[in-house]
Design a protein around this nucleic acid. Structure first.
Lengths: 113, 113
DNA sequence: TGGGGTACTTACCTTTTGGTTGGTTTTACT
DNA sequence: AGTAAAACCAACCAAAAGGTAAGTACCCCA
């Protein structure tokens, strides 16, 4: 029943999105699911070799809580866990392309007066 | 003549965009220019009262260097400085609306199973 | 019994980001 | 000479984000 006094700045929907999109790894992780139905923990480790396991876990946990990714555990042996984009998560994908376009325009102007 | 060994991850255009969009204040500052031809330093301080002067200066400087904002100095008295969106900066505006839409969808699902 | 595979977790440390406070400069007005 | 307004800077500090290294749990197979 705790009633947190949230500031406007924290309840702003833009900021909610930045929580998903911001950070060093989240968008990179989400991007891996473009063209991949589902990915396992180990797949992501291979696809993004620079990421530490701590970060990968942390971000996966976050993205699941945020309803961007779903997690399916198969109690096989060896243990298998599959991550996939939720419907909501799929809506993030187009942003990646748009951000890339913008980024390319930014590069063109680099160093210009 | 320094030749920095940049990693792929740093030259990625998506990351360039995240530099502009990320952080606590940059998008908020850019958003103030929606419907405003130009804004003065003092205007922005009033429009975003929570921001510290250090951050406002820092981000304005960054956004100018990144070709998102232009800066015009009028050597009047008292000194007048006007900031405005560049053509490139105007291309960031639509993102704000899109991020807000996504953010609203995120909120709808908050706490759901 | 012990090594290997998969999926994590924890403790500790460094780097980055952001906040606080108190300056500076220029010009004008009184 | 003193004060004020606008724009900006710098030193210091705290909090958040990210990195490193090691360990856990589970099960299998040799």
């Amino acid at each position: 029943m705790e009633k947190k006094e949230k500031k406007l700045i924290d309840t702003c929907p833009v900021r909610k999105s930045l929580d998903i999109i911001g950070g060093k790894w989240k968008l990179l992780i989400i991007g891996q699911f473009f063209g991949a139905e589902m990915l396992r923990y180990g797949d992501l480790k291979k696809l993004i070799p620079e990421i530490s396991e701590k970060m990968l876990n942390q971000e996966l946990k976050f993205l699941c809580k945020a309803n961007i990714l779903s997690k399916k555990i198969f109690h096989e042996t060896p243990l298998r866990v599959e991550y996939a984009l939720t419907d909501l998560g799929k809506q993030v994908i187009p942003f990646i392309g748009m951000l890339a376009d913008l980024g390319n325009k930014l590069e063109e102007l680099e160093g210009e007066a």
